[in-house]
Nucleic acid binder design. Structure first.
Lengths: 284, 284
DNA sequence: AAATGTCGTTCCATTATTTGGAACATAGTT
DNA sequence: AACTATGTTCCAAATAATGGAACGACATTT
């Protein structure tokens, strides 16, 4: 589609589909217009600082007119907002949609009592997360003390390779799937103890598979440790995890062991509930 | 586009744009494919119970093939998820997008310290809301006690006519804009004291404009009262509101007066902050 | 077991929408 | 005033979406 205009004079008729092999390495299904619009939205949503029109233009390499209309559509739909200084921000309609997504998420609502119970049993911060490609998205969070806002994490995404939940989820993947995803991970050494190569990660995953417990030993943020367990399986279609997080100084060996047991117990309880509440409808 | 197939034999060339008058009563700008996709997403997100393919088909009155591809695209993009029982739910990618929208929302972050201060001064639940067409969307919430989940309201929408914040925001609208929106309101009598006609509402808005304070006297939910004030103006482009909510039995006259003052003070403080933090960039 | 109905999926010529390039507009700078 | 970077509009050409029908998979009825 790029710079080919000069050469197509001879064959203006559209090529029939069987010529196709050129698009071997493309994504499976293009989602067409929707995908392009979301590319813009994602860029706006994930930008570290507010983007102006030209910033987006340069990052996406699209014609001005096209991008302009795409953004106009996004604004019209309330997915993007135009700031007074001509920068763009994601729109509050997203909040509304997400509120529905959150309350309707059956996995989250099934897990909720167990997440709460784990929080009450440990008194520490408990996270519930779900895998999305090569990230963990936090579905829920019970904060230890209400100093930080509860929202701080729900809906946010973190890397898989340096979080307790993330590693627990990776350990649930079958080998081929795991390899495919690990290849796409971009390792960053967040702290001294971050597992910063695929090799280190894979050998840690072996350990996690054996014990059923995953640890974050200050691998993502200095001073923060966590204990996590995976939930679900690749076959079941749900791959998630639950974790207890606390400052490193507050944790001693005895508590660690206790938490491990509680976290695993919670994970198994959630799995059991899922089977009884979702399985029947699926299998009957 | 409907049943015209037989008649267009003679003019296959596309009509030039100046013929346009046929589309007089259409919406301003059609957002094309994006709008259609969001129609489906909205339906799935706002349905009281999980929808299956055919449910959506009947509600949207579209050809099967078309709808099928639209949903497939939404799923491919992670905006919709397919449950094991073949029903659809909004996807967790929405959570991720919304988390960004929330943290990047400049109005919300400017207001946050004032919302928190109001919460601490009153000890009651404080809401921050923003107008969206004929609804109020809650941007933030500080709960009185942490019994209910904090998420319960953020991102959710309520009617304008029967909530304290909603009425406060309506009172900020210029007359023509107000009329246009009130016309589209569908009044429901949630409680005995709900203002259930446009007349009742408009005369209440007069009162709110005079005093600068809006009350919800158990108009939305029995036993729940609130005191609210509007923030911003139609001209400034921000129309929002802040409120203190409490069970009716807990409120006496003295507190009510105190809250009114505090709420108005918070609203004015937020407006001042907005001017100093957003205005400059805009005007300089 | 066969027949019927419902539901979800696939296909493809027709039709409508998006695209891309350029021209036009509007600040902000030298 | 000229220059630059930015935002907006336009339209033929390229592309994607549509709509109808046919297909397959199940479930229910005869």
């Amino acid at each position: 589609m790029e710079r080919q205009r000069e050469t197509i004079e001879l064959s203006k008729a559209r090529q029939p589909a069987e010529i196709g092999p050129a698009r071997l390495d493309r994504q499976e299904h293009s989602t067409g217009t929707l995908g392009k619009a979301l590319e813009v939205l994602d860029l706006i949503a994930h930008a570290p600082k507010p983007l102006r029109f030209t910033d987006i233009l340069h990052q996406l390499n699209q014609p001005r007119g096209t991008l302009h209309r795409q953004i106009a559509n996004l604004i019209e739909e309330g997915l993007v907002e135009l700031n007074p200084d001509h920068s763009y921000a994601p729109g509050i309609r997203l909040l509304n949609l997400a509120a529905r997504a959150w309350s309707k998420n059956s996995f989250r609502s099934i897990a909720e009592p167990h997440v709460r119970a784990l929080h009450e049993a440990t008194g520490e911060t408990v996270h519930l997360g779900q895998v999305t490609d090569i990230q963990v998205v936090y579905l829920d969070k019970f904060e230890s003390i209400q100093t930080v806002r509860m929202h701080s994490q729900v809906g946010n995404a973190s890397p898989l390779y340096c979080t307790g939940i993330g590693k627990a989820m990776l350990a649930l993947l079958p080998e081929d799937e795991l390899d495919a995803r690990v290849k796409r991970i971009e390792f960053n050494r967040h702290t001294q103890s971050t597992l910063y190569t695929a090799e280190l990660l894979l050998s840690e995953l072996d350990e996690i598979r054996r014990t059923g417990i995953s640890h974050d030993r200050e691998e993502h943020e200095p001073g923060i440790r966590c204990v996590a367990a995976g939930i679900g399986s690749f076959q079941s279609g749900t791959i998630a995890g639950i974790s207890v997080t606390a400052p490193a100084f507050r944790i001693d060996e005895e508590m660690l062991v206790a938490w491990e047991k509680l976290v695993v117990k919670a994970a198994r309880a959630i799995e059991a509930d899922m089977k009884s509440k979702l399985g029947p409808r699926h299998q009957e």
